Computed example of a mutant assay.
Amino acid sequence: IVMWLRTCATMKWAICDGTPCSCTLLIGNGTKQPLDCTALVPKCFLMKAEMDRARKGLSTRTIGGKQHETAIVDNDGIYDPECENDGKFKAKQCNNTDVCWCVNSAGVRRTDKGDQTLKCEKLVETNWVRLQLTHKEGPTNVNKDNLKT
């Protein structure tokens, strides 16, 4: 019997099995989150998987545990987020405690911390900056035959 190891190209921690192959990610308490391995894994699912792995003493994305000297220090630490079914962060995060806060679409705290009565009406989208890099125009047209050499 030949066993084929099937993997998820966008998530090395995923388990792919069945016919047809379906991929899942363990996100805590034995819960398997289905994944689309043709797209990037939502950050909320990634954070949940990382917390699950950390609790089990398995490897995570953390490299050596040492922060770069120019890195911004997150004094809140890592938290186990609550995710929507589509992988977006829920607007209000409480991390299994009575302390809650509102997050933006990147999962970053955007309000002061409060109690369970804190209202986070909707998820605030983060702003993205897109850069388009182009080549400076040259003095002449490019000869496509010269490009090969």
Rank of each mutant, 00 (worst) to 15 (best):
D80H: 06
I72E: 04
G64W: 04
C23D: 00
G65E: 04
C16S: 05
V108I: 14
T31I: 14
C102M: 05
C21S: 15
N127T: 15
L58D: 05
D145H: 10
S22R: 14
A49L: 01
S59N: 09
S105I: 05
D115F: 07
K88W: 00
I15W: 02
I27F: 04
T70H: 08
H68R: 11
C100L: 10
L25T: 09
K90T: 12
T10E: 08
E82G: 10
C83P: 03
D112Y: 11
R109G: 02
T10C: 06
I27V: 15
A71S: 13
L5M: 08
V99N: 09
K48C: 00
D145N: 15
N95F: 05
N146Q: 13
V142D: 07
T70W: 11
R53P: 04
N85C: 01
C120W: 11
E137W: 11
R53Y: 03
L118T: 14
I1D: 10
D74W: 01
N85I: 08
K56Q: 09
T38N: 10
R53G: 00
A9M: 08
K32G: 04
N146V: 06
Q93G: 07
S22F: 03
D17N: 13
T62A: 12
L40E: 12
L118W: 12
K119W: 02
W4Q: 10
K119F: 04
K66Q: 14
D145I: 11
T19W: 05
T117Q: 13
E82V: 08
V142Y: 07
L118A: 09
G18I: 03
W13D: 14
L5F: 07
T24N: 06
N95T: 04
C102A: 10
D76G: 12
K43F: 00
T149I: 12
T38W: 04
T126K: 13
L35A: 01
D98T: 12
D52A: 15
Q132Y: 14
C100W: 03
A71Y: 03
C23T: 05
C21V: 15
M3P: 07
P20E: 02
T38M: 07
T24F: 11
N96P: 01
Q132W: 12
F89N: 03
P34V: 06
S22K: 13
Q67L: 15
K122F: 12
A54E: 09
T19L: 11
D36F: 02
R109D: 02
P139C: 11
N85D: 13
L35Y: 01
F89P: 01
T7F: 04
E84S: 12
K92T: 06
Q67V: 08
K113N: 07
I72T: 12
E121A: 12
P20K: 06
L58N: 05
C37S: 02
G64T: 07
R61Q: 07
L133Y: 13
T126P: 02
W4H: 08
W101L: 07
G64H: 05
R109Q: 15
C8A: 01
G87I: 03
T7R: 09
I1H: 09
L58H: 07
G87R: 06
N29E: 13
